[in-house]
Design a protein around this nucleic acid. Structure first.
Lengths: 352, 352
DNA sequence: AATACCTACTAAACCGGTTTAGTTGAACAG
DNA sequence: CTGTTCAACTAAACCGGTTTAGTAGGTATT
């Protein structure tokens, strides 16, 4: 139906050079500039006929603008980087999905970098993204590269944190309300009648978001006048596991009647341990864990958890970052997302 | 230690223009070309002193080449697209990880597109990636866009399939050996004494990879002289669930003694159903499922499954795609990855 | 001494768009 | 009849690299 002479038909398009703007311009008998104006919707001083000719030429040639050329001039990549520990995680994959959905809606792309909990890989990812000139970065940082991150921020790279805070900065971060969540979980156990609640955690001295959880736990104990016994704080490390075995903890003088785990990895390892030792949940000990568990409804004992909102966190992080990218002067923000307790069957009143 | 005059110190680097190649050239007193040669490791005709001067200038200025400019000239993006149904899936996230790990190792980036099982979104993702001029695409296609995909292939876009085959093409795809896996699972049940094995599947008429599963199931039955009763083929759809409820199937004349589910989603829905109806696994009926299950060890009854190798599939898909990108004339391949049965506790000999 | 052949560079075109600073011709005002 | 204004464009510079073709100067060959 085109009024233009069709191109000689080429069977194998692979050998055909990509159509470019100049081809469109020639076919429409206008200059490159005019076609560019057209593409960018600046019709202020363009006649209807010219518009029609250009539209037809674009269609005829099946022209698609080259975003690389466009980005070179604009000095933007329309791409952000996302640095996470492992995209494979239950919550993490959902956070990524949130980031990605938001980005796609804004014509941005997200590049994922996995660090596998290695600060060095984290540093390399940061550098790679910087060199790649992404427009911004969302990071769940290890807390070991704070100085480095500050340097990139100083260089003008917009950076948004999630999950773990960047020490010394209350800015541009989005996280769950860990303190409130830990308070709620602890209170929930207390109201069930628990007095000796074991707080199972990674070292939280230099990591705010872990510290916050502890603060919530401690606050709940205090509110109900329950002594905060340091023996009930049990430590776990990714590499070495539990400092004291859960079994030995349960056999100690101050045996807890409930476990409160601060991370899915801890919950998982605890569960394995308890399984092996034939310690029954919730009959022998109650359990509430941070982070939701996939397919928990099919568990021998479905575990009650504090559910974070990873998808929402991802969306909000992306939103915050894009705001930062597009308005450099805006004030930075700290956004808190509420958690909620998903009651399942791992918490009951203590026996004794 | 630099022998060059340091630049005047600027406190706020955000306001500093990015250093570019010409700046390095000027500082090192050479031409742009020479710096470019240096950056690309072509030292054939370059004096040692010049190299040293350029290296120093780069360091001095903290210069990082702009990949956009580089890509514009090279007409490459060093980026591939990955189209999946949902990155959040247990296996899918691992496949993505495999793709990404391989890509990162080859200096490529992967852009993820989620279709949420919608063919239209799939078509849009394809178009977006094409317009973006990614160097290639890995897709777990719905099977509904085969013609469209062929068009992109004709346009010269390297495309690799995984999980679901592109009908009419045995080329550039990588998938699990579904037939063998289904055969093995069926044989496993037969050897336990099962004769009436219910094959729970999505419609497999036009989807090869589902058909293959059925072929494996049928082949095992035939090998052991067990009649292939069409009543034991039960259909499930993502939108509407089971055609006949598992309970009714178990109450029919030809009640199966084992279920064999062809997809994690079917396994999950079956499990929910069985839970509600208080039908016990494996006492009332055995169950083996396609696709591994996260945290299965904590299940009331840990489910025996056929485990695919999503991470390996991702790696192989990326490898195949990059080979295609870098050698257009190479012959295409179909790669099969073996599955294995992960025995847990959902299969026992039938009671009767 | 003239020619060939290196080495060690450089100028300029190029990639495919965007943008700025014009240019042209017609309508209208004075 | 000249000057101004405005619609409707266009030429050329620009983004930041890569690449091609070429050049200058020195040494080896005949």
């Amino acid at each position: 139906m085109s009024t233009y002479q069709p191109l000689p038909h080429v069977l194998n398009k692979q050998t055909m050079a990509k159509v470019k703007l100049i081809d469109v311009a020639q076919l429409a008998s206008v200059s490159k500039s005019t076609v560019s104006q057209y593409l960018n919707g600046r019709f202020d001083y363009m006649s209807k006929e010219t518009q029609i000719r250009i539209r037809a030429a674009i269609k005829e040639l099946d022209y698609v603008p080259n975003p690389i050329a466009r980005n070179l001039k604009a000095d933007k990549t329309k791409t952000i980087g996302v640095i996470v520990r492992d995209i494979t995680g239950f919550d993490t994959s959902r956070t990524i999905r949130g980031v990605d959905d938001f980005c796609k809606g804004c014509d941005y792309n997200a590049l994922i970098y996995n660090t596998d909990f290695d600060p060095e890989t984290e540093a390399k990812s940061l550098e790679a993204l910087y060199q790649m000139r992404v427009d911004g970065i969302i990071i769940a940082s290890s807390g070991q590269n704070n100085k480095l991150i500050s340097e990139y921020i100083d260089k003008g790279m917009p950076i948004v944190h999630f999950q773990l805070e960047h020490d010394g900065s209350e800015k541009n971060l989005i996280l769950s309300d860990y303190r409130q969540a830990a308070f709620d979980a602890t209170e929930y156990l207390i109201k069930l009648g628990h007095q000796r609640i074991c707080f199972m955690t990674q070292d939280f001295k230099n990591v705010k978001s872990r510290n916050e959880r502890y603060a919530g736990y401690a606050a709940a104990l205090e509110k109900y006048g329950i002594p905060n016994n340091p023996g009930l704080i049990q430590y776990w490390q990714r590499e070495t596991g539990f400092e004291h075995s859960p079994k030995s903890v349960l056999e100690s003088d101050t045996a807890p009647t409930a476990f409160f785990t601060q991370h899915l990895a801890i919950t998982t390892e605890l569960l394995t341990h308890l399984n092996q030792e034939n310690i029954a949940i919730p009959d022998d000990v109650s359990l509430i864990g941070f982070d939701d568990i996939p397919m928990a409804e099919f568990f021998k004992v479905p575990v009650t958890v504090i559910k974070q909102e990873p998808y929402i966190i991802g969306k909000e992080a992306a939103k915050l970052l894009l705001e930062n990218i597009n308005d450099k002067n805006r004030h930075s923000q700290k956004i808190m997302i509420s958690c909620s307790i998903t009651q399942r069957q791992s918490c009951i009143a203590p026996k004794s």
